[in-house]
Design a protein around this nucleic acid. Sequence first.
DNA 1: ATGTAC
Length: 489
Amino acid sequence: MTGAPVGKMRDIKFTRIADYTYEIARNQEEGMNVPGILFSDPEMLDHILADQSAQQVINVSKLPGIVRASYAMPDVHSGYGFPIGGVAAFNYDDGIISPGGVGYDINCGVSFLVTDLSYDDIKHRKRELVDEIFKTVPSGLGHRSELSLDNSQMNEVMTEGINWAIDQGMGISSDRDHTEEGGKLMPADPSNVSNSAKQRGKNQLGTLGAGNHFLEIQRIDQIIDKDTAEKFGITKRDQIGIMIHTGSRGLGHQVASDYIDLINRKYGQDESGIPDRQLIYARTGTDMFDRYFAAMNAAANFGFCNREIISAMVRKAFSKIMGTEEDEIRLVYSIAHNIAKVEEHVVDGKSIKLIVHRKGATRAFPPGRKENGHLFAETGHPVLIPGDMGTASYIMVGKEGNMDRSFSSSCHGAGRMMSRKRSSDTFIASAVQQNMESRDIYLRTASRKAIVEEAPGSYKNVDMVVSVTEAAGLAKAVARMIPTGVVKG
DNA sequence: ATGTAC
């Protein structure tokens, strides 16, 4: 049934307008330029209402130049200004860009690699493999890389993205076709990145970081869409893959804080009508817009390069322990889920240029978009969904028609259900680890804190998030992976 | 998420 109000909490009214799709009408609050749209189910709506995310969806809908709707993906939760799991597109000719709409971890994202190895091939060496990766890939807060870059190398990384790593022998040239935009976003201008941001990045290339960032050895658990899986190189149950979830580290974080600060100082007064200070933005056509966009792309390129170099370290570890060749560990895809992109979309029957913010949301283009590249023209590019460390992760692809539903965006993970603090108060590290061990998941972490804060019970059920994402018509599952070895910051 | 901080 469509059209009847289904809930009212915190004075926010939702109307079910389609399968797993709820609307917050434009008349909900004064100043909304577009409605809010949440992809969810009745059970998950409760989680949304328990935090600030629905209000944040409303706040975003009031920003200038927003087109069609302010969206929340099924894994939405509250974030800095914009919700995590939020998608907002602005008219490129008369809109805005907002650092809060991208998030502090610019190009936080995922790489997934597959091997021809089966679980049986690695199980007797699994601990050695994980230990080797844990030893060679620095993880945790403040842990430095053995790579130390000078200014000119930093500038190259920020303009060239993964090409820098490939030129250095830390990557394979074919990885370009398996990375969003070839792993090099443009325009990227390091001169718009502060010295302190560059300083922070110099010893962080090839580091995993902390929080929900991870590196997992996974086994293919279910192949859901056999044809597509095969095109992605996934052919059998128990096939071994490696998932890397990390971003642009301290460099991206510094770029975000620098520009939030700069924009606030320059436009804070003029934009006093803004519903939340944290939504501060630069308007299209201003120098500030161009500077942030080019700095964000520079940080994103650092993020792509970071995942590429970690992939090279994984290839090396597999080679040392398993005797595999570099090209036997194949990149399926590397994609961002914290980014703003310039994209063409049809709005009101006309194709227009937009600046699409995806913050904790994954681009999910179906076949037919040039961005897919030649390899994924027929399938759509892989959409990588990292779950929690004890349950599962997914590969999906965009569903036909999702351009009209979410500007071709999908969920980006399970989404937190408990705050880090509440997780720390709820879980005991040894019990979490033991539980994982009993399910054959070997865990190495840089800190005890990571174990409790990242306990699987802190997250929404990823299977449910994925099934709502499917039912809402955003993306469809291709394969489900389960972790067997986990490295956490 | 992040050298836990203006």
